[in-house]
Write a protein that binds this DNA or RNA. Structure first.
Lengths: 338, 338
DNA sequence: TTTATTTACGAAAACGTTGTAGTTGAGAAA
DNA sequence: TTTCTCAACTACAACGTTTTCGTAAATAAA
């Protein structure tokens, strides 16, 4: 434990605790020579103010929470990096919480954050979240909330997102233009608005090019990799075998590769694949994977920036700002026209 | 801010603050009916104890720090997941700090952690760290430190590591047995003990199979991807072109793939590649990459477990425990014998 | 009956910082 | 001289818990 405190500094300097405190915050009430004496001794004794005492007194912790479904995923990892970068610049600390795509964990985390441990929360919903009351509770405690990527439509809060509808449309269009006639959409929990929007984009893409919309070609995947694998395999073994796949999540594209490998289906000859993804190795896959890459790092930075703006200037009450950062299509071999 | 506190509960119940506090911690000093009354009201009013007041009083924050070089790397991401899992089980909170492989940032972070903000630290050194005084300072403040993966030999602290020497040996052996006669080693900062051990394993592997050790075949890479790319390319363009590459870090293997692609070198026919890696897509790369995979998730869990053991039972002073978790060789196409 | 022990609670002092409300002494204005 | 102002500092309360030390009443032991 750090044992040098204001009292000790004060004693050593023959000053009062309050004078030392103020000197350290460079208050105008303290004379320059005194400040210098205080600074010098503080440095010499390696004084570090106790953050908990300060937080208790000021009702501010200079700490934020990042709540995400998973971290072993380049998108979220990069987002964290963006958030951490901005946070450290601003002198904030970052607590991390993983929901593992379990709404129960998300709720427990949200409940624990009501204690005032953090000044604000940056969150990306987990796939199974339907009811968002636990997040409303947070807001009612005056703890600002900023969503990124997996936002909630039901809650008024700043949101950092990508152009999901447009991206879904572009992905579908890209597959159709590459010659696909039966485009499947692999998605996660439809309770997520991003999934919904990507699905809408997919449907609009089909409609735009006069393709029929077949609900059997939309596979709702979950967080169990085994189950996902089986569902995808069944899709390919059914009489409705797709010749194009739009994976809304990176891990599903990976499963498609595995399934195709097992079934002896060639990509892109038999099946073309495109996926939302931030895989660094997309270009090295066999075949290289056409992706729609989200600006994960920038999204993290943006979310953090918005949150800190709220935290620092509370007098400006902006109930909702939405930032839309565009995803980028990277065409690679997996969607080459045969 | 959370505004319901002990005082309010006490008032409502006609009890003293101390009684309410004790009742909530289920103290034997409080009668069962009183406890029940307190529990009920606390639940009803959604009382959440102020963690900062508690931390201030108890000199314990139930918070740990995880300091790592990067997060956009499956190894570290999985380690975080392991740490977070154990932490939440134990009721701890996890602060995350990224050094971005900059020793200056590592030092700044270590300094800021001296404030007593955290009860303990789990750390993986950044590549450029030579002097570790900043970490000794932490220990002197009685903040337990646990290393994982990139440990420091100079500091007495628990360490969770993999069998780096053996793995380096196995990787080299594997390449030689696959027919390589000029095995290169791509490594990062030699100030890191893991790099040193892997290098030793590499050298011992060469020696064991009577291969000459050529310092020109050992490339010391840094954190600048561009520079790494160029150095690797130069290696392949030199008259000492290797026919086998042992990459000590995943990102360097990726660069090797890129370089080979640019230079028209075939893997594994012209060059065989093996790498330390936790890439989920290793098996889908073109060609699939032979890896030495570290049990990242388990390493995270283990590091956290050790740290919490120290934090909970301080009376048992175990100056140093080392846990060695074995890495696993996964043979794939990139090292197939021609 | 008196004395000791136990049970169930309360008062108050911490923890280290910050904010409010003084206080002091020196110089300026009256 | 007295009063006023102002710069530079101090005293003290507050933030919300936890913990130490009491204490009153009830019960047991003498």
């Amino acid at each position: 434990m750090n044992s040098v405190n204001l009292k000790q500094l004060a004693q050593e300097l023959n000053l009062s605790v309050s004078t030392v405190s103020r000197a350290l915050r460079d208050s105008w009430e303290i004379s320059t020579p005194t400040k210098q004496r205080v600074f010098d001794l503080a440095k010499k004794m390696n004084f570090q103010p106790n953050p908990y005492a300060s937080s208790l007194r000021k009702h501010r912790s200079r700490t934020i929470a990042v709540v995400i479904p998973e971290v072993a995923n380049n998108f979220f990892a990069l987002a964290i990096k963006g958030i951490e970068t901005v946070a450290r610049e601003k002198g904030y600390h970052v607590l991390i919480y993983l929901t593992n795509e379990e709404v129960a964990e998300e709720m427990a985390i949200a409940a624990s954050l009501q204690s005032g441990r953090v000044d604000g929360v940056i969150l990306s919903l987990c796939g199974s979240t339907q009811d968002t009351r636990h997040l409303l509770d947070l807001q009612q405690r005056n703890i600002p909330l900023v969503f990124f990527d997996r936002v909630s439509d039901g809650i008024t809060a700043p949101k950092v997102m990508t152009n999901d509808h447009e991206s879904g449309f572009i992905a579908t269009e890209h597959l159709i233009k590459a010659g696909c006639r039966r485009v499947a959409h692999l998605t996660i929990s439809m309770s997520l608005s991003i999934s919904h929007k990507r699905q809408q984009g997919y449907e609009d893409g089909l409609r735009r090019y006069d393709q029929p919309w077949d609900p059997d070609l939309v596979i709702h995947c979950g967080s169990d990799e085994e189950v996902n694998y089986r569902m995808i395999k069944e899709l390919f073994l059914s009489d409705k075998r797709p010749d194009g796949v739009f994976a809304s999540v990176e891990k599903l594209a990976v499963q498609v590769y595995h399934v195709c490998r097992e079934l002896g289906l060639r990509i892109p000859e038999d099946v073309k694949v495109i996926s939302f993804s931030n895989l660094v190795t997309a270009s090295l896959l066999s075949p290289s994977l056409t992706t729609i890459a989200q600006p994960a790092y920038d999204m993290g930075k943006e979310a953090a920036t918005i949150l800190f703006r709220r935290l620092e200037k509370k007098y400006i009450v902006v109930p909702e700002d939405r930032v839309m950062l565009p995803a980028k299509l990277e065409v690679r071999a997996s969607t080459m026209s045969s």
